[in-house]
Design a binder for these strands. Structure first.
Length: 854
RNA sequence: GCCGAAGUGGCGGAACUGGCAGACGCGCGCGACUCAAAAUCGCGUGAGGUUUCCUCUUGUGGGUUCGACUCCCACCUUCGGCACCA
């Protein structure tokens, strides 16, 4: 009786042996080409779930493949261990976040091992460890020195459920909810720390150094939201102040019939006349009470109030009224706009509602816009009118610009096409130039990107290393005093203020400069800081943990960094497109500027895997009861089957629903591979097999090597597994023939095991060892593809008549065109449908098809 | 509203640069083994028809082409991102 495949008996054995033999221990080996393969680090939420397996095991397969190709591969793992989950769970369970987090990490370490992945466990890093966050704090101090960290009193987003402020990136959706818990955020005026990420806006738009998915590049580009235009100073009649506006359409300056400034604009107070004061104050107060959701609702009726005074338009000295309205935001541009109702829909709605004048300054070809009857604004192309020196100028794309645009289209694969912007208009360029020449304005660029708000009023994060002294002001904690330790005995019930504020021992300190009484900053840092540099932390976890660190230190061993950096391949979910993936790019640019690294991008290539869904095609959640637990699956089918099924389910970037029946197909496949290798064939043929059989077997072998190699290179794991299945099916058929036991047979079986090794590491190791006791299958070289052996001897020629398939014919692969046409013409199908009609044309596609047109 | 992705059998999905649509797997049907069942193995499986053959079929409607899942135009549906950003 044949031995059965029992994964439970082999997987643990090999995992232990690999670890004991140090198969995956990290070695910096200058003789070998390195490959840094990184997968997004998990949050230690409790149990590893199937989504982690979906993210990590195909990555592991790709990393293992690189290793078999001769690269020295670094595939580390760690834990993003600060954050609200731990704190909330700790509050709920009456325990300490530290205890909760570490218990989870312990459990997840075991679960991670059950994957059988080639983790560099010797380089694991945990971000809530003081030995880690002392460097996170070090980064804060460095950024502070560089002027990239600053504190500001400003209206900020605050999550009332999590009781903390959030960065703009962490507020999602139309209802502006908290990315973590889904609660709609509110605005609060608070003194908070920011990172000046907007300083890197322009550079963050440049993707030429990295090979990232179009989708992420577009999302980041939209998020950064660059727009080109001009800044123009209007002058107020009262006080003669410059009232600066930003516009993307300076060519419509002559159409401005009023101005609108944000209700929060600093000049509102001074410019309001006594007669309007009461109305204005009511409106300002009303705006302040509104949430952002109410204020920014797109379909809302326009509201606003005339403040009683006027401004002078610098292009034609016209006197136009100044209004306040909540559709103008203080946070974008200059907080003031010129309103051109004829050519801007928002201004148009406002003008119609308040009976303000509308003046057309762009007339489209073929019609005449009438301000009194036009139903909406006209934002399109035409010719400038009522525009002083620019009357008759083309508003739109001039022939010259169209030519330039055509010539400049081949920008390469990393070019992101911006939404066609008004600044490509000929008139915009002409007017902007004139504004600059006459000193009326200058070209300007604005971004939607906001500075990164990093203060959090919560306990479980790295304390911001700042001290406030009555004499010296804001004093950074000296580098040598790091880490600023999180006190273990703090009361951390959330109140909306930092729990550290109520810890006297933490809060009250002596000023490091003058020695006088001082107070610590009590907010902690956004956990996205920890994950912005973890790819560097892995190089030498807890570097210099025993010694004081200094300003000019490095957070990792430079030699190791020189060898491994930067990350060659990064994989993770798309949900981080405008959060972690922007922050970490910003961090690396800052690190380059501080001289730590010679490059500006942390990860050269990125791949976003999809989301694994429940069997009901819905997102997995405890409340839906559709959660798939990997531990149970491993118990039942083994890690290899779970890994292979996750890869087989569909394209990795798409994700898809789990199927408890589907995994059984993969299990059958593994059973058949097992039988193939461990069972003697029932009938061993005598004598030599016909040479053709061996050739046929070698052909399949090498075609599979080629296919699997291409697939794994491109992360097409689903078709890779399908090819392995086909190959195995072919071998099972061949097993009962005379090729069994020949060199071609051995080559085929060995190739199958080698090709399976990255995806199904345990079963391939077990079977490999049975055939070749000795070095691990994971130490073997990836099989070489022999093009000569893979070549087909005959091909099936498709015979078409008028484009419809009428027959097929087998011909030698190297057949010439004339012979192919003749062979096709001779087929019964061709004869029947041509029926003696004159053949007008014959199309021949080499080695594939002949089409007769009659 | 703007930007982007995707629509293929009962299901998950294949099809490289326009050339056999439905690989591989699930499910289902029939058969073998078995007292029986499970497991395993073999065969079949897009739809329809007048069934050695023919017609139709890749969201819908057009188009280009000898030939379209693939390219172009319009539309429908689903999902994702952004949104009073001047």
């Amino acid at each position: 009786m044949a031995e059965k495949y029992i994964p439970q008996q082999i997987e643990k054995k090999w995992q232990e042996r690999w670890e004991a033999e140090g198969l995956y221990a990290t070695r910096e080996d200058p003789r070998k080409e390195k490959f840094y393969f990184l997968t997004m680090l998990p949050y230690p939420s409790g149990d590893l779930h199937i989504g982690h397996w979906y993210a990590m095991t195909p990555s592991d397969a790709a990393a293992r493949y690189k290793r078999m190709r001769g690269y020295n591969v670094f595939f580390p793992i760690g834990f993003d261990a600060f954050g609200l989950n731990a704190e909330n769970a700790a509050i709920k369970n009456q325990t300490h976040p530290w205890i909760w987090t570490h218990a989870n990490i312990e459990r997840m370490r075991k679960q991670l091992r059950s994957m059988g992945a080639m983790w560099a466990l010797d380089r694991e890093a945990v971000s809530c460890d003081p030995r880690y966050y002392k460097w996170t704090q070090w980064f804060f101090l460095k950024l502070y020195e560089m002027g990239l960290a600053y504190k500001q009193f400003a209206p900020v987003d605050f999550c009332p459920k999590d009781n903390t402020t959030l960065a703009r990136e962490q507020v999602w959706g139309e209802d502006r909810h908290c990315e973590r818990c889904g609660t709609p955020v509110i605005k609060k005026n608070l003194d908070q720390w920011f990172f000046r990420i907007t300083k890197s806006a322009e550079e963050l738009l440049d993707f030429t150094q990295i090979d990232w998915p179009e989708r992420v590049r577009v999302m980041q580009t939209n998020w950064i939201g660059r727009s080109e235009g001009a800044e123009v100073d209007f002058r107020t009649e009262v006080g003669n102040h410059p009232l600066r506006v930003f516009t993307t359409r300076p060519d419509t300056l002559w159409g401005a019939t009023f101005m609108v400034i944000a209700p929060e604009h600093p000049l509102v107070e001074e410019l309001t006349t006594p007669a309007q004061r009461a109305q204005v104050e009511t409106y300002v107060a009303q705006t302040r009470r509104q949430s952002d959701i109410e204020r920014e609702a797109v379909d809302k009726e326009k509201t606003g109030v005339f403040i009683g005074t006027y401004a002078i338009n610098p292009v034609n000295d016209e006197r136009i009224p100044i209004w306040i309205a909540d559709y103008v935001l203080m946070t974008y541009g200059t907080g003031a706009i010129m309103a051109v109702p004829a050519h801007d829909q928002r201004d148009f709605e406002f003008a119609r509602k308040f009976n303000l004048p509308i003046r057309v300054v762009i007339q489209p070809a073929g019609e005449t816009l009438d301000p009194t009857t036009m139903p909406e604004s006209y934002p399109g192309e035409g010719v400038l009118v009522h525009s002083g020196p620019f009357n008759g100028t083309i508003a739109g794309i001039s022939p010259k610009m169209a030519m330039e645009r055509l010539e400049g289209t081949s920008q390469g694969k990393n070019a992101v096409s911006y939404p066609s912007s008004a600044s490509t208009y000929y008139s915009v360029q002409e007017v902007t130039q004139w504004l600059e020449e006459t000193g009326r304005g200058q070209r300007a660029v604005n971004y939607h990107l906001h500075d990164w708000l990093i203060s959090r009023q919560r306990y479980w994060g790295a304390p911001i290393p700042i001290i406030y002294c009555a004499n010296c002001g804001t004093v950074p904690v000296p580098y040598e005093d790091l880490p600023v330790l999180l006190p273990e005995d703090a009361e951390f019930l959330p109140t909306g203020e930092s729990p550290l504020k109520f810890h006297k021992g933490f809060r009250y300190v002596k000023c490091p400069q003058c020695g006088g009484d001082a107070e610590r900053e009590t907010d902690t840092m956004d956990t996205f800081l920890c994950s912005s540099w973890y790819n560097y932390a892995y190089l030498t976890p807890y570097w210099k943990d025993e010694e004081p660190i200094h300003r000019d230190d490095m957070p990792w061993d430079k030699a190791k960094g020189d060898y491994w950096l930067p990350v060659d391949q990064y994989t993770g979910g798309i949900e981080h497109a405008t959060m972690h993936l922007i922050y970490t790019r910003f961090f690396t640019k800052a690190m380059r500027d501080m001289g730590l690294v010679p490059f500006g991008e942390p990860m050269l290539r990125l791949f976003n895997q999809g989301l694994i869904l429940g069997e009901d095609n819905e997102k997995m959640s405890k409340s839906r009861g559709n959660v798939v637990a990997p531990d149970d699956l491993v118990e039942r089918y083994g890690a290899d089957a779970v890994r292979a099924y996750l890869m087989f389910i569909g394209p990795w970037e798409l994700g898809g629903p789990w199927s408890s029946q589907g995994i059984e197909g993969v299990q059958r496949f593994l059973n058949r591979v097992w039988t193939l290798v461990t069972d003697e064939a029932e009938t061993r043929r005598n004598g030599q097999p016909p040479a053709g059989d061996a050739r046929a077997l070698r052909r399949v072998t090498h075609q599979t090597i080629q296919k699997v190699t291409q697939d794994i290179e491109h992360f097409r794991f689903n078709t890779m597994i399908a090819s392995l299945m086909e190959f195995n099916n072919a071998l099972l058929k061949a097993k009962d023939t005379a090729v069994y036991g020949t060199p071609a047979w051995d080559e085929a079986v060995d190739s199958l095991l080698l090709l399976m090794a990255p995806s199904m590491p345990h079963v391939s190791e077990e079977l490999w060892q049975r055939r070749h006791p000795g070095p691990s299958v994971h130490m073997q070289r990836w099989p070489e593809y022999d093009a000569e052996a893979a070549k087909e001897e005959t091909v099936t020629l498709i015979v078409q008549v008028n484009g419809k398939i009428r027959d097929k014919v087998n011909v030698p692969a190297n057949i010439g065109e004339e012979e192919a046409k003749a062979a096709a013409l001779a087929t019964a199908g061709a004869q029947r449908y041509i029926e003696g009609k004159p053949v007008r044309k014959v199309i021949y596609v080499g080695g594939k098809l002949v089409n007769f047109v009659v």
